[in-house]
Amino acid sequence: MREAILDKGANMGENKGVLFLAEGRDGGLAKITYELTTAAHEIAGQLGGEVNAALFGTGLTRAVAELARLGVARVYVVDDPLFAYYHPEAYLAVATRLVRDICPSVVLMGHTDTGRELAPRLAFALDTGLCPNCVGIEVDAASDALRLTRPVFGGKADGLYSLSEDEPWIVTIAQKVFEPAVAHEGQAAEVVAFAHRVDAGSFRISVTERVEDSSEGIRLEDATVIVSGGRGIGSAEGFAELKELAAALGGCVGASRAPVDNGWVPANLQVGLTGTVVSPNVYLAVGISGAAQHIAGCSSSNTIIAINRDPEAPIFRRAHYGAVADWREVVPALTQKCRAMFG
């Protein structure tokens, strides 16, 4: 790796393409990184300019090697224990500096916990426009301006947006919308260790404690089968029944917001706009009405099966299979059947 020697003046007026902020996970790359790569190439293909990636964290050797095989020109790396966890001031300082140095036309991030926190901060620091949670990005051929689509009103409608002229345009992309890019051997990007000069002593926000919930089994976003319950489940005991069904299917339990607000399940089980975005093979929605804010988190599931006693429930307009029934009668029979079938 070489140290970055960057001269902002030399870049002025040039079209510097797209910079995306990659995310690592468990030593490798998070799924969203592959989706970002695809989105970045689509935009750069129309706007011109190169695709560069940035990755902040620590212990990144394997992640950087993988990122370098995704067909990007350069990978800017900050590999430092200071970046082990997302800290808004650390990430903002280095992101601002990097963007000012390499002057991309577009900065892409995933609409993830990191992206939705950092992107607005970066947009305000640079005083440019941001479109969050985009599900569609087009480049207007005549003006080279971006036309961005994103869900609004909790997913009930979409809004089409353009950003003011000042670059860079900052965009966070919704998870599981773009096809993940595939790494190729021999496509080695140039890896640049970015000298960040961030001083933790200057931070105004200090993180004094970090508590991880004892996580049982698979994470929601990785699950291939999710049995999700809503207000209709009625109690924590009801969720224990869903857990048995999930176990029989080798999956895990999710929830709409109502059970979280009622304290029947922990908050990290919430699927939706303000919870986890999931895309399992099978999403079984039990006693969930199908509010737009919930569907926003599960609509990319391969198969959605709904059990609801109300035939008018909106979930039946979003599910592939549905049954109008009281879950208390169906779930025990279903669990038994699945134990026999898949156990």
């Binding site: 947009a123 005083d127 440019t128 426009g129 941001l130 479109c131 036309r147 609004v152 009930k156 409608a157 979409d158 809004g159 089409l160 947006y161 353009s162 950003l163 003011s164 000042d166 609509s299 959605i304 709904a306 039946f316 307009r317 979003r318 599910a319 592939h320 299979y321 549905g322 049954a323 109008v324 029934a325 009281d326 009668e329 169906v330 029979a333």
Partner: peptide, 23 residues
Amino acid sequence: RANLVKFFVPARDILCEMIGGSP
């Protein structure tokens, strides 16, 4: 910084196959 061009309702309804009968 961000201009709304328009709102629209995307076509998203899926044909749901109903499973009936006893529990």
